[in-house]
Structures are given as structure tokens and as C-alpha cells.
């Protein structure tokens, strides 16, 4: 199959196989992916109904509402990241494999972003239009959400790995992740509102990008270590 007989298959082969496995699993159970997406869409459509039709008010509240909804939707999806692997014993098999756990954890996290972060980003323009955000702001919102959800997936994977051994770890997971997610929320929402007001917003995007790069380089190692600890 993959790799020559007798040799440990390469890291990229392993990363690709992990991605493929996770995406296939989501395809078999699309509900896991759709739930957070529905949550995001619901919160964002209920807000305008509750706040009344004043365009000014809507555009003012939009960045905050969109970002809070995105953050909560990501949290909602994180809980299940390692839960099923823990339940069916395949996590132990991953831990007992000679492949570096970092690569397997990264593969799972990338798959998580592709199935929960990316759909939010793609859905956001429609919701932004419902909030009457200016057309020029929509791509800023999309880039900010892309960078932000990448960070949230990565940070969240650490929390999910730490709480995987606990029954009802959801509350604890949120408590662990929220403080780390605050910069993402603040920079994300602020960037979008600055852009909507016609001010310079690039600093915010840079900060989000820096945060995402930092998370990408540190979080997989923390996730791998956390998985080992919680499997003791």
C-alpha cells in the first residue's frame, strides 16, 4: 500500500492518511459538522430579529455578534475532537504507533478546521449581508475569521486533548480555552468594526495572523503531550 515494505511510512503520507480518515468520518456522519454550522447561522439570524430593523444598530452590533457566534460554534464542535477516538480505543492505537503523535494530532486538527472553521468562513458573507455590513468589509471579515478559526481549532485541540479522559469535560474545556481565545475574539471583532467604519484595520489582521502562526507552531506539541497525559 503506502510506503515501501519494511520502512516506516513518511510523515506526509501519515498526515495525509489522517486527514483522509477524518474527512471520511465526517462524510459518514455529516451531523457532527452541520450542528455547529446551524448554531452559527441561527444565532446570527436571530439577533437581527430581536434587535429590530434599524440598519445603523445592526451594522454596529454585527462584528461582535458574528464573532461571538463563531467562537461558540467552534467550542461546540471541539468537544468531540478526540472523544470518539477515546471511546472506541483507536486513540490508544495512535499512541502506540511509532509515528510522531504531533503529526497525527496536527492531521486531526487540520481536519477539524476544514470541517468546522472553513464552513463558518464560507457562510459568513451571507450573514454579514443580513447585518448590512458594507460590501468592502466582507472580505475583511472572511480573512479575519479564517485566521481566527485556525487559532481556535489549534487552541481547542489542546483543550480537547486535556479533557478527553473526563466524563462531561465540556464545561472544563470551555474554561480552559476561553482565556486563550479572548485575544482572537477582541482582535477579530475590532478588526471588522474598524473596517466597517472605514478606518485602517490591517494591524488587527496582522495580530490575528501572528496568533495563528504561534498557535500552529506550539499547539500540536501541546496537544500530543496532553493526549499522553490524559490517557494514563
Amino acid at each position: 500500500m503506502n510506503g515501501a515494505a519494511g520502512q516506516l511510512p513518511g510523515l506526509l503520507v501519515c498526515l495525509r492518511a489522517t486527514l483522509q480518515r477524518e474527512l471520511l468520518l465526517v462524510l459518514r456522519r455529516p451531523g457532527d459538522m452541520l450542528n455547529p454550522l446551524f448554531f452559527f447561522a441561527m444565532v446570527c439570524t436571530l439577533f437581527p430579529l430581536a434587535m429590530g430593523p434599524s440598519e445603523e444598530q445592526l451594522a454596529f452590533a454585527a462584528p461582535g455578534v458574528l464573532w461571538v457566534a463563531a467562537l461558540l460554534a467552534m467550542l461546540l464542535s471541539l468537544n468531540s475532537l478526540f472523544l470518539s477516538d477515546h471511546a472506541d480505543g483507536s486513540l490508544e492505537q495512535l499512541l502506540a504507533s511509532p509515528q510522531p503523535l504531533v503529526v497525527l494530532a496536527l492531521g486531526k486538527t487540520v481536519a477539524h478546521w476544514l470541517t468546522s472553521g472553513l464552513p463558518l468562513v464560507l457562510l459568513s458573507p451571507a450573514l454579514a449581508m443580513a447585518f448590512r455590513l458594507p460590501a468592502g468589509t466582507i472580505w475583511v471579515l472572511m480573512s479575519a475569521l479564517t485566521l481566527g478559526t485556525v487559532s481556535l481549532s489549534l487552541l481547542g485541540s489542546v483543550g480537547a486533548a486535556l479533557t478527553v479522559g473526563l466524563h462531561r469535560g465540556t464545561a472544563l474545556l470551555s474554561l480552559l480555552i476561553l482565556p486563550l481565545a479572548m485575544p482572537v475574539l477582541i482582535f477579530g471583532a475590532r478588526t471588522v468594526s474598524l473596517s466597517a467604519a472605514g478606518d485602517t484595520y490591517s494591524m488587527g489582521l496582522f495580530a490575528l495572523a501572528a496568533y495563528a502562526v504561534g498557535a500552529l507552531s506550539l499547539a500540536p506539541f501541546a496537544t500530543a503531550a496532553a493526549l499522553r497525559i490524559s490517557n494514563e
Binding site: 516506516l8 483522509q20 472506541d88 483507536s90 509515528q99
Partner: peptide
């Protein structure tokens, strides 16, 4: 290691599970 539990994904087929497993260790 063959654990007490099978340790494969119930939603995937036997060949899908094994082709993922085959990237985990030397064959």
C-alpha cells in the same frame, strides 16, 4: 499491540481502517 478493544473506527470499512493503519507502522 492488540488491545481488548478493536481500536478501529466503527463508521469506516475494514479496508479503510486498515489502509489508515498501514501508514502508522512499517509494513
Amino acid at each position: 499491540w492488540m488491545a481488548h478493544r478493536v481500536g478501529m473506527k466503527p463508521d469506516l470499512t475494514a479496508s479503510e481502517n486498515l489502509s489508515f493503519e498501514s501508514t502508522l507502522r512499517p509494513l
